[in-house]
Design a protein around this nucleic acid. Structure first.
Ligand SMILES: [Mn+2]
Ligand SMILES: [Mn+2]
Ligand SMILES: [Mn+2]
Ligand SMILES: [Mn+2]
Lengths: 132, 132
DNA sequence: TGTCATTTTTAGCCTAGGCTAAAAATTATA
DNA sequence: TATAATTTTTAGCCTAGGCTAAAAATGACA
């Protein structure tokens, strides 16, 4: 995949994983709340067109994170569920950390949505520790 | 739609600003160290091809952040210098914050490179306070 | 000064993530 | 059960950020 040893290339790569993580997290959440997940749910959730959701979904399916028969509901694969759990956990740790730091709920929600994709295991562990 | 109020669209937008911030920061740094800045310096710095640097530079010029006559050195505009200063300051606060948290130097360097683009003013202020 | 090496630019290709408009399929309802 | 409304998919477009290969300009130096 990424053969460059520059840290910058890795950051740009994180930006590509970002959308995958956000999607599996959203699919899991919506599945829990509404039972099933449709294209239109994701379109509303992310504030993008249904055509865009459809295209991104194809990427998720390609990465074996989700599956969906044409015109039917969307499901996570085992792999997708695993990534969803990891992403949610990570998101939650960062969110709680920001609150602990003193950041307002609204801003913590906003910032954690971006920061979550850029914290390494080491940083995450220290945030978790700080939260206790 | 296009003027979506979804936080996700804003995060994707932050990813687009990211490259602008990293470029002006790098141009400023290299200018201070070596006196002038060439395409090849940035190519090495970011680990991308010179063609890619050239293209990104066009975007910077378009945004009135940098200027450069063909085949000559690269300079920041007043606006570019301003963004460079802000970016560097932000980067430094996040970096020092991670160190203070207990993150190793290497990982702090790496994580701050990504996180810097996703911290709001409020969070930044609290990190700064934590650093003291 | 003329030639060669290096650097920069251009051209053309790719993937990802957006959009709109229209076609196709599904779902609701008269 | 037809028909209408809704949803999903497809097609085609755009920008951004990558790449390689080749052309053009600059710089070194014999
Ligand atoms: Mn998340
Ligand atoms: Mn996110
Ligand atoms: Mn930076
Ligand atoms: Mn950065």
């Amino acid at each position: 995949m990424n053969k460059s040893n520059s840290q910058y290339s890795n950051i740009r790569n994180q930006n590509k994983n970002e959308i995958l993580e956000d999607y599996v997290e959203a699919i899991q959440e919506i599945a829990e709340i509404k039972g099933d997940v449709k294209n239109s749910d994701l379109s509303i959730h992310f504030g993008v067109s249904q055509a865009t959701v459809n295209k991104n979904l194809k990427r998720l399916i390609n990465f074996n994170l989700a599956k969906s028969e044409p015109y039917r509901s969307i499901f996570l694969t085992k792999e997708g569920k695993k990534l969803a759990a990891i992403s949610r956990e990570k998101h939650e740790i960062v969110y709680q950390f920001l609150l602990k730091l003193g950041v307002s709920k609204k801003v913590a929600q906003y910032d954690s949505e971006g920061i979550e994709h850029h914290v390494s295991e080491e940083t995450l562990r220290l945030m978790k520790k700080f939260n206790k």
